[in-house]
Nucleic acid binder design. Structure first.
Ligand SMILES: [Mn+2]
Ligand SMILES: [Mn+2]
Ligand SMILES: [Zn+2]
Ligand SMILES: [Zn+2]
Lengths: 139, 139
DNA sequence: GATGCTAATGATAATCTTTTGCATTCGTGT
DNA sequence: ACACGAATGCAAAAGATTATCATTAGCATC
């Protein structure tokens, strides 16, 4: 009963899963690596292994509870699925992550996939740049 | 004198660099991981270390000779820079890689970055799906 | 509420990709 | 041909993620 979303995803309501889901829902970062989540867990004194964090995040992804992103930098970043699909714009200076939705781009993507004979399953779009703050700093 | 592009990038014309550039130019795969390049080298009996392949590919990237892509799957994939910028559509079934250019999307991206206050430095767009071949196989 | 079976967990080792340290070799200008 | 710094190969290290396996914890049942 602790969290209806876990049941919905067909996952047993275990303590690690409840805690991790809670972190993803409440942490202002919104885009977190496994390590990020693990550190929060440690901070609150929870005894959850890093391996479990990885396992649970992958299960959440499979169950449609979170999305996995591959921002530059090697590690996977996770974000809880709430609200509609969106893409990301990232600052190469400070790491800030902004989100946007552009229906024209979405539409063009579908058209391109179709023209190439593909059935599109997914797509990922990242825009990299310098945010306003960082532009000032570099001058 | 072996390859003008190396000089252009400010890199000494060493044997590993010459060979690797040649592979990137001539191999029909066009999108190759460091390991891919290394295997070709081994196949032709060259005595080049994998570490050197990684080093050289990174130098090529810095020198603008190649682009690095982060397709799903963990490892970096490299492609020689010739012709104009383009994005990629990848088959999740067989790994095929197709390329496309869409000026509308490029334009929208610039507009989005600008509106968010960013100076865009780069962007990456991957469309994932099932190619024509793979659609048939799965039925 | 106790019981039992299975799935989940934590710790650790293993894997995979990429980077580094360092002694040796090579490329280039003289 | 020489000299010197840059580049290389090898091996070890690092960083991220996954696999193994003995132990523990959900949850349906009694
Ligand atoms: Mn997001
Ligand atoms: Mn390409
Ligand atoms: Zn910034
Ligand atoms: Zn295919």
């Amino acid at each position: 009963m602790e969290n209806p979303n876990l049941k919905k995803a067909g996952l047993k309501a275990t303590l690690p899963r409840i805690k991790i889901l809670q972190i993803l829902e409440e942490n202002p970062l919104r885009h977190m690596s496994a390590e990020d989540v693990y550190k929060v867990l440690l901070g609150t004194g929870e005894d959850v292994g890093l391996a479990t964090v990885y396992r649970v995040l992958t299960q959440f992804e499979t169950g449609g509870l979170v999305s996995r992103h591959h921002f530059e930098g090697g590690q996977s970043v996770f974000e809880i699925n709430q609200g509609e699909h969106h893409d990301h714009i990232l600052c190469v200076g400070c790491g800030k992550v902004d989100e946007f939705v552009d229906e024209i781009i979405e539409q063009r993507q579908r058209a391109i996939a179709k023209k190439a004979g593909y059935v599109m399953t997914d797509h990922s779009l990242y825009i990299y740049g310098m945010c306003g703050e960082c532009q000032k700093k570099k001058m």
